[in-house]
Amino acid sequence: MSLVFDAVLCLVLLAGALGVVTTGAARPAVIAFIGYGLLLGLAWVRLAAVDVALTEIAIGSGISGVVLLRCVRALPAEPLTPAPNRMLKPLAAVVSITIAAALAAVVLALPEPAPSRAADVAAALPATDLGNPVTGVLLVFRALDTLLEKVVLLLSLVGVWALSRDPACRGRPAPLSPEPAPAPSAFLARVLAPIGVLVGLYLLWAGADHPGGAFQSGAVLAAMGLLLVMGDQIRTPAAESRGLRLLLLAGPFGFLAVGFAGWATAGVFLGYPPGAEKAVIIAVEVAITVSIAVTLGLIVLGPPAGEERP
C-alpha cells in the first residue's frame, strides 16, 4: 500500500517538474515550481528525513517561491523569445534522457550493504546532550559546513545589496506593493504573525531533540516578518541601521567566535567547552536563527532603494 503511495507521489513529482520546464509562461512555471517543492517535501518525509522536509518546504519552496514571484512581476510581460533552433528540443530531450538513464543505472547499482555513518553518530551523540542527530551533525560534527553556509547566506545578501542604485547601500528596500495593504491582508498579518512567531520559536527550541532547528525556525520567522511587511504592520528596515547590521552579523561572527574559543576551551577549532556543550550550542543556535531570519527576509525584500528624500 505504501509502495503504491510512493509510486503515485513519484509520478506526480515528475509531472510537476515537467510542468515547470515545459510551461512557456513565467508565472505558471513559478507556481508549478512552488507545488513541486511541496511534493518534494512530502517525498523527504517518506524517506524518513523530516528535518530535510521542513527545510525544503520552508526555504526551497516557500522563500524561493516569494523571491521568484517577485521576479516575475519585475520582468517584462513577454520576454523576448529568440526563435529556437528546430533541432534544439529533440537534442535536449535526448541528452536529458541519457543523463537520467545513466543516473538511474547508478541508483540501481548502489552497494549492498549501504555504507552508513549512523552508528558513528549514535555513538558520539550522547556527548553533545542533543537528541536530534541531524542537529548534532549540523552544529557539532560538521560545524564547519554550517559556519561556511552562514557566510554564503551573508554573501548572498551582500550580492543583492550590491545591486542597489545607491553606492553606499542606504535607505529602505522598495515596498512589496505600491498600494496600501488591503484590509484582509492587514488582518491576516495581525492574527497570524503571533502564532507564526510562536511556531518558529518552538521549532528552534524543539530542534535540539526533535525535527526542527535553526534553519527551519529562521525561515518561519522570516516569513512572519514578510507577512507583517505585506500587511503594512511594520516598515521595511533601513539598510544603514546599526542594529540591523548587528543582527545580520550576530550569527556568522558569533559562531566564528565560539569556533576560535574552541581552541582555548577544547583544544580544537569549533570545539565546544567540555561540560557546557549544550548551553553553548543553544546560544549559537539562537544567534544563527536570528541572523538567518533577518538575512532571508532582507534577501526577499531586495536591494535598498537609496536615501529617502524628505
Binding site: V21, A26, L88
Partner: peptide
C-alpha cells in the same frame, strides 16, 4: 523508487536548463 524519481528529476532539470526561453526558466 525515489532514487529513480531523483534521476528523472535531474533529467527534467537538464532539459529545462537547455531549452528554457528566458533566464528565469
Amino acid at each position: 523508487l525515489f532514487g529513480l524519481a531523483g534521476a528523472a528529476l535531474v533529467g527534467c532539470g537538464v532539459y529545462g536548463l537547455l531549452t528554457a526561453p528566458g533566464a528565469l526558466g
